[in-house]
Computed example of a mutant assay.
Amino acid sequence: MDRNEFMRRLRDEGFEQFVTVEREPNGALDEHTHPFEAEALVIAGEILIESGGVTQTVRAGETFHLAAGQPHSERYGPEGVSYLVGRK
């Protein structure tokens, strides 16, 4: 999926805020939550999202979704990660 298609789809679903996030190689964030729903498109690198005992690896061109308040942790691949996230 390309960036424009992703943003168009999310706008149709009510997402209004878009942010590009960059994370360092081999970095991590311990378990946390967000007060917003998030849908993200990985632009480069990879991110591992762990939530509810399940780990999902998301690479460039793939998307992931987190519900508002969903506890999760993050780990970033050896190249780090860059992703475009829509929030609502």
Results as ranks from 00 to 15, higher is better:
17 Q>N: 15
17 Q>T: 13
17 Q>C: 12
17 Q>A: 15
17 Q>P: 00
18 F>E: 06
18 F>C: 05
18 F>M: 07
19 V>A: 09
19 V>E: 12
19 V>T: 15
19 V>F: 08
19 V>N: 13
20 T>H: 05
20 T>V: 14
20 T>M: 09
20 T>I: 12
20 T>F: 02
21 V>L: 05
21 V>D: 04
21 V>R: 01
22 E>D: 12
22 E>I: 12
22 E>T: 14
22 E>V: 15
22 E>Q: 14
22 E>C: 13
23 R>E: 09
23 R>P: 00
23 R>A: 08
23 R>K: 15
23 R>H: 09
23 R>S: 09
24 E>F: 06
24 E>Q: 11
24 E>N: 09
25 P>G: 06
25 P>Y: 04
25 P>K: 06
25 P>D: 03
26 N>G: 15
26 N>M: 13
26 N>I: 11
26 N>T: 10
26 N>F: 15
26 N>A: 14
27 G>H: 06
27 G>Q: 05
28 A>M: 13
28 A>L: 09
28 A>C: 10
28 A>S: 14
28 A>K: 13
28 A>Q: 14
29 L>N: 07
29 L>P: 03
29 L>A: 08
29 L>I: 02
29 L>S: 06
30 D>F: 03
30 D>Y: 05
30 D>K: 08
30 D>E: 12
31 E>W: 08
31 E>F: 10
31 E>M: 11
31 E>Q: 12
31 E>N: 06
31 E>I: 08
32 H>Y: 03
32 H>I: 00
32 H>Q: 09
32 H>S: 00
32 H>K: 04
33 T>I: 10
33 T>E: 11
33 T>P: 02
33 T>A: 04
33 T>M: 05
34 H>I: 05
34 H>Q: 12
34 H>N: 09
34 H>T: 12
35 P>A: 12
35 P>V: 08
35 P>D: 15
35 P>Q: 11
35 P>M: 09
36 F>I: 09
37 E>Y: 01
37 E>G: 02
37 E>Q: 09
37 E>M: 04
37 E>C: 04
37 E>N: 02
37 E>L: 04
38 A>D: 00
38 A>F: 00
38 A>P: 02
38 A>Y: 01
38 A>E: 07
39 E>S: 15
39 E>P: 01
39 E>K: 14
39 E>W: 11
39 E>Y: 10
39 E>N: 12
40 A>K: 01
40 A>C: 13
40 A>I: 00
40 A>E: 01
40 A>T: 03
40 A>L: 05
41 L>D: 01
41 L>V: 02
41 L>T: 04
41 L>C: 00
42 V>N: 00
42 V>G: 00
42 V>R: 00
42 V>K: 02
42 V>Q: 02
43 I>G: 03
43 I>R: 04
43 I>S: 01
43 I>A: 06
43 I>T: 07
43 I>W: 01
43 I>Y: 01
44 A>S: 11
44 A>Y: 04
44 A>T: 11
44 A>P: 05
45 G>K: 04
45 G>A: 08
45 G>M: 07
46 E>N: 15
46 E>F: 04
47 I>A: 12
47 I>K: 05
47 I>S: 08
48 L>V: 14
48 L>W: 15
48 L>T: 13
